[in-house]
């Protein structure tokens, strides 16, 4: 372990350690918040700590480490970063919509109703349009 790490300059090691600890610390705080927050809609905010700068910090640390230790520019970690930043909102949005759907269908919790102005508007439109239906 750590064959190439011994001949790294100290500033690079400190930078790698700093970003690594920031990233993993944020991921841990996110997980703690995910445990402690009381309702689902609050809990959905906590893991984004890990998926925004948690991932960002660890990716930066990995980029600095491999760039310094191999002597050439390595930034393919950016791919994971971009991929996760783009995909996490999609999963969270889908999950939140599923949760809203279930809560509304079962009528529990204090979730807001579907904006119900749209439904009558469509019905009125449908009635006034003789070609329809």
């Amino acid at each position: 372990m750590m064959q190439s790490a011994a001949d790294m300059p100290v500033w690079a090691a400190i930078a790698v350690a700093f970003f690594l600890l920031i990233g993993s610390g944020l991921a841990l705080i996110g997980a703690i918040g995910f445990m402690r927050l009381p309702t689902f809609y609050e809990r959905i905010h906590a893991p984004t700590l890990g998926t925004s700068w948690g991932i960002g910090g660890i990716m930066l640390a990995s980029m600095i480490f491999f760039t310094v230790s191999s002597g050439r520019l390595v930034f393919h970690e950016l791919l994971i970063g971009i991929f996760v930043t783009v995909t996490t909102p999609i999963t969270f949005m889908l999950l939140a919509r599923a949760a809203l759907h279930r809560d509304r269908a079962e009528g529990n919790g204090n979730v807001p109703d579907k904006p119900n102005r749209s439904q009558p508007a469509r019905e009125v439109l449908g009635e006034s349009d003789p070609r329809r239906g």
Partner: peptide, 26 residues
């Protein structure tokens, strides 16, 4: 906008209603 708001911790995009063009956030 949805990606920006959801990946910012503290705000989450729940659903967009394309009929009256409002968005529900938490």
């Amino acid at each position: 906008l949805a990606v920006v708001l959801t990946s910012t911790p503290g705000s989450a995009w729940l659903e967009y209603d394309s009929n009256d063009r409002t968005v529900l956030l938490h």
